[in-house]
Simulated scan of single mutants.
Amino acid sequence: MTHDAAASADLLALARRIALVAGEHAVEERRRGISVAATKSTPTDIVTAVDRDTEERIRSMILDARPDDGIFGEEEDTHVGSSGLNWVVDPIDGTVNLLYDIPAWSVSIAVVDGPPDPAHWNALAGVVVNPVSGEVFEASLGGGARLGDRELHVNEDVPLNRALVATGFGYAVERRRSQAEVLVHVLPRIRDIRRIGSAALDLGALAAGRLDAYYEIGLNPWDHAAGGLIVREAGGRIGGLRGEAESDRMLVAAAPALFDELTALLEETVV
């Protein structure tokens, strides 16, 4: 299926409107108080009622506007559509930050042409909203990336040893142990590390020049669908190791030259 820039811009406008409404709702729910509704992969991998309520609200707004599209989200079963377009939704990215009232969590919504698999989709529109700060990172295919009214571009010409690099960690003990081993290898060779707690905000920050690079093992498609398009439209490169596409095995994002340096470093330790 082919989509022109105008169609992608229309999808972005809808995604932005939905994300802003959902984010406002989530902030109101957080003010009323929050509790852990369930755990997922481990006792520290939590889901709150806000996550579930926010995803339900997002799904309802999507289906009201575009009933033939599919929806692939974190908290609920996939809704299979007939249009070929899929909405990839993370209702709250940074749930632990939300729980602790750390103002670094986001609503992430992308629209992709094709299946909800990063190796086979073509991202058309993506928006990442931080409802606490009010910042809106967004991009449409061929339309560039923006933070509010500001056009975004990744930092260029940053050598690896001067790069401020973000990452994140999983919930399972064994994964954390292996991620720590990678970090020990990476940290002495870069400027410093940042761990914000929301992959979507990390990618938005990279596009905005607040970070130079980002890598993480174990991401799900909804964690980076919107942020990945924002980085690409800001001139960045995203992929995995050894020429692979980004996946749960690894996602690396940076300006093209730094991407090559960082992936080479990571390939020394990641099997």
Results as ranks from 00 to 15, higher is better:
V107Q: 01
I109R: 02
A110L: 06
A110S: 12
V111P: 06
V111T: 09
V112W: 01
V112K: 02
G114D: 08
P116Y: 11
D117P: 01
P118T: 11
H120Q: 15
A123C: 13
G126E: 02
P131A: 03
V132F: 00
G134T: 14
E135R: 14
E138D: 13
E138G: 04
S140R: 02
L141H: 07
L141S: 11
G143L: 08
A145I: 06
L147D: 01
G148A: 12
D149Y: 11
D149Q: 15
L152E: 11
N155E: 12
N155A: 15
E156D: 13
E156F: 05
E156A: 12
D157Q: 14
P159A: 11
L160I: 09
L164T: 15
L164H: 15
V165K: 05
A166E: 08
G168K: 04
F169L: 14
V173H: 07
E174F: 08
R175E: 14
R176K: 13
S178P: 01
S178T: 13
S178Y: 02
Q179F: 07
Q179C: 05
E181I: 09
L183T: 10
L187E: 12
R189E: 07
I190Q: 00
D192V: 12
I193E: 10
R194L: 12
R194Y: 03
R195N: 14
R195L: 14
R195E: 14
L201P: 00
D202A: 10
L203R: 01
L203V: 09
A205Q: 08
L206W: 07
A208S: 15
L211M: 07
L211E: 10
D212M: 04
D212W: 05
D212Y: 07
Y214N: 00
Y215A: 01
E216I: 11
E216Q: 08
L219N: 10
N220V: 08
H224P: 00
G228I: 04
I230C: 14
G235M: 12
G236C: 04
G236D: 00
R237M: 15
R237I: 10
I238F: 11
G239L: 08
G240A: 06
G240F: 01
G240N: 02
L241Y: 03
L241D: 01
G243W: 01
